[in-house]
């Protein structure tokens, strides 16, 4: 999917030569300390930050440096870490914007499907998104991208600011569920242990480069990784 990608702002690379391969049905997680370039990498994949070198493709189609609205048409759904909903719009309107590229009758069908996935949203369809709790808001953000039935889901710290129980439910029930349903999930996550539990492959970023990568079980056996990210507890 991403080959030797370098990306950054104003012509200065923040991430350097990164390879990411993600296949349908798999969760690839990206972990690393603050400032390691995790969010910049994701933003470059979805067209928000310019790619300065390398290439990105989805299903064999080159999407390098395409505008975000074009990348959305290619089945890539992106949930940013912050500002992930439209606060003045109602829950229903947020979902409708998520389905902006669909025909009108398809929008109603997809809203029904998304509400089956997130039944809690049913009761709050007329509520403004800005009035939702953190967990409800994140469900709406996920629901918004699911409107287009994306083949690739790019999620930037979806559990940030969520209570531990809600975060665990989001990761293990919903995000792992997306992959099990056939989507490719690319996940940046601060809770390394929780991320590894649902991942098929993990990249560890440091200073804008991949410093480690591998299957979660293998990383859990790596003393450097355990020391840095799992707080000394190797059990996933």
């Amino acid at each position: 999917m991403a080959s030797q990608v370098s990306a950054g702002y104003d012509g200065r690379a923040i991430v350097h030569g990164i390879d990411v391969e993600a296949n349908p049905g798999r969760v690839v997680s990206i972990v690393g300390p603050n400032g390691s370039g995790k969010s910049t990498l994701l933003k470059s994949l979805v067209g928000v930050v310019p790619i300065l070198g390398g290439a990105v493709s989805v299903g064999g189609t080159d999407i390098t440096n395409l505008p975000p609205e074009k990348i959305a048409t290619m089945g890539v759904g992106y949930v940013p870490q912050v500002d992930d909903v439209f606060p003045p719009l109602t829950v229903k309107e947020n979902l409708e914007i998520g389905g902006y590229l669909l025909a009108r009758h398809q929008v109603h069908e997809r809203i029904g499907a998304v509400l089956e996935f997130f039944p809690r949203l049913k009761r709050m369809m007329t509520r403004k998104a800005g009035k939702l709790s953190g967990g409800e808001r994140k469900m709406l953000a996920m629901g918004r991208v699911l409107m287009l039935s994306p083949s690739v889901l790019v999620l930037d710290e979806p559990t940030a600011n969520l209570a531990p129980l809600v975060a665990t439910q989001l990761l293990e029930e919903y995000i792992r569920g997306f992959a099990d349903a056939g989507s490719t999930v690319l996940l940046v996550e601060q809770r390394a242990k929780a991320a590894l539990r649902i991942s098929d492959w993990t990249l560890v970023l440091g200073g804008g480069r991949v410093v480690l990568s591998g299957r979660p079980d293998d990383l859990a056996d790596n003393p450097v990784f355990v020391e840095s990210f799992l707080g000394g507890g190797a059990h996933l």
Binding site: V46, E69, D83, I97
Partner: peptide
């Protein structure tokens, strides 16, 4: 949110 709007297509 213009960026999010673009990401929504």
């Amino acid at each position: 949110n213009p960026n999010l709007a673009r990401n929504s297509g």
